[in-house]
Amino acid sequence: MLAALQTELLLAFRKRSELANPVVFFIIVCALFPLALGSRAELLSPLASGAIWVAALLATLMSLDQMFREDFDQGVLEQMELSAVPFYQQVAAKIFAHWVMTGLPLVLLSPLLALMLFMPAESYPVLLVSLLLGTPVLSLIGAVGASLTVSVRRGSVVLSLLVVPLYIPVLIFGSTAPQMAAEGILPLGQLLWLAAMLVLFATLAPLAAAYALRVNMLGS
């Protein structure tokens, strides 16, 4: 399990030019909001957390298609399946590596973008916490979608259709929490919901993804 994690992180790091794409995408989308909505601070500041969350969701969505594709095509996944290390653990390692290379940079960049979108100062910590809890959920749910569509060429439409509805709760809880913080309310409920979803999907998603990958392998 640890060896798998090490390998996956190393690989993710080697692929960093590819994985930088979502980060760049995230920044661009956030930069488009003021251009489309107008640059006035009083207009942007209530929308800031929503914009950041939508951008983070789209950026994650964009990176999902590549999550298992290469390893599936090269026969790496079937070797993992045949190995003595439980397959779902190796899948979990891949998901974690995916989050480290896509979700985590988004979390770290978000204060900068929040600043550019005039987010009220009270919201910053809540935004960070919500992204920190929410982006792993995006990676986990996304992994299930990516594994279901791994044998589909150009499967990104099906993948989005599948994953976006499941992302909605994360989006709702994640984006409203900073808004409530701006109004001076501590959004404990939302953050707890995000944490609960993180626990739920951290346990279920690797199993479901491993099963779906196996099903796709058997049919290829």
Binding site: A3, A4, T7, L10, L11, R14, K15, D71, D73, Q74, G75, V76, E78, Q79, M80, L82, S83, A84, V85
Partner: peptide, 26 residues
């Protein structure tokens, strides 16, 4: 099982590949 597909990971070095393949079986 060694199939048609190489199951060698392009972005790992030869040494890392062998390490990874070894890690598949404790």
């Amino acid at each position: 099982y060694i199939g048609h597909r190489s199951s060698v990971r392009d972005r790992l070095t030869v040494h890392e590949n062998l390490q990874w393949l070894a890690s598949l079986n404790p």
